[in-house]
Design a binder for these strands. Structure first.
Lengths: 230, 230
DNA sequence: ATTTTTTGCGCAAAAATCACGCAAACAATT
DNA sequence: AATTGTTTGCGTGATTTTTGCGCAAAAAAT
């Protein structure tokens, strides 16, 4: 047992892929964490992730581990940084290729595989294993940068949403406040939203218009060389 | 000899750090390449870089290899992507943590260690080893993104430069043309440039004003939460 | 000697941004 | 039932920013 049968002329680090999964409940940004069942850091919370197999890419590894540990399938993960500090892991030298993904809370069915997977609000994150607090800070910064220039926010909302929900999301991520009317106009002027229905003329005013993200329009506009610049 | 003395329970990939080094000669963006002296890809051009030691971080490795192979010291390298395709390297599974840096051409003394290091203009890049053409494309994209929001361009120019030189740099990187007067005004209005001398009133007009990047002003402004948005 | 290029200064039209007002519909409270 | 506060859509005027171009002097090129 415990044979050491993979041998090299020079020392090799182990490589893991970890996933910072963002969600949004209408009020605050949430993070999907799993509780570690084994040492080291047993009982502590950490990002889904694990060791990369020798015949998979980092992205494939991230997706596989994510599904194994949380039941979340087909998330569109994106690499954002590789952490290579010497003593990240007490067991051996481990470098971690960190990814992030934005998912709809509704798509993550609790239970099943993910007995110990749990959503935490950004302002209520427990103590994390390894250097995962540093990874989280970096992921959050990347999210803030990214959402200003790519319409990734829509991945966090239901398919159909109101302008106020969209504004709440932007305000939660960027930690700022926008004027409601200006946000409304700015968003519509971008031309990447479609009103779900022309809204009946006699509808009560209080019932807000609903929109969906128009991916075709966006890729059109992008090709013509326009930038979001939020 | 050739003992395989580092053994693990599971297979481990090898890890390298590679460096895409950008320069600017006043007209076009240049890349520093080295010619490979050994197989695989012997004779082909590649980025400086090499295998990570077990007691150094990726960034340390990138800097060390850069100095060893090109003589370039103390470059401020920044990681931008980790390449993990299965068959990147015919020898064994190798993942590469790619970095980039911006340096002044004048700071790279040819010769010495770097017998086979050479600058190539962006539009005249030879066939590259491994997947380095893909790495180059990605680095260039990252540079384009980055220079719009961080004043990194100044690392490519001499300490003291004219507005026209700065404009040429931006145009070379972003592959666009700016109106000279608008560029001039926009840059000055940012408040991150210092005129080297108040410019004598009777100076000939044709002699352009010279500027330097004011790092203090920039970090001041940045703290107050302003963005470049070029 | 003539033409072309480069630099600095600056303005006016067009566009974008910003800070609000207002009324109707609804919910919660008294 | 009346009052109060909230949410939604529509709009508007003031300010700021962007953009496109003119001009003259000095230097370089022809």
């Amino acid at each position: 047992m415990n044979e050491l049968k993979f041998c090299y002329k020079y020392p090799h680090p182990a490589v893991t892929a970890d996933c910072v999964i963002f969600g949004f409940d209408g009020v605050s940004i949430k993070i999907l964490l799993i509780q570690r069942g084994i040492e080291p850091y047993k009982g502590k919370w950490a990002f889904p992730g694990g060791f990369m197999k020798i015949d998979e890419t980092a992205e494939e590894c991230a997706k596989r581990e994510l599904e194994e540990e949380t039941g979340l399938k087909n998330a569109s993960v994106e690499q954002f940084y590789t952490f290579s500090d010497i003593n990240r892991d007490p067991r051996e030298r481990v470098i971690s290729i960190a990814h992030y993904a934005l998912v709809r809370l509704s798509e993550v069915k609790g239970g099943d595989d993910a007995a110990s997977a749990k959503w935490y609000a950004m302002n209520d994150i427990p103590s994390l294993a390894f250097d995962h607090d540093r990874i989280l800070r970096m992921a959050m910064n990347r999210l803030k940068e990214r959402i200003c220039f790519e319409p990734i926010g829509f991945d966090l909302l239901p398919e159909i949403f109101t302008m106020t929900e969209l504004q709440n999301l932007y305000e939660a991520i960027l930690e700022v406040k926008f004027d409601r009317r200006n946000f409304y106009n700015k968003m519509l002027k971008l031309g990447i939203l479609t009103e779900t229905e022309p809204r009946p003329a006699n509808a009560p005013r209080r019932m807000p218009s609903k929109y969906r993200f128009n991916a075709e329009k966006y890729s059109e506009l992008k090709q013509k060389g326009f930038r979001l610049e939020f």
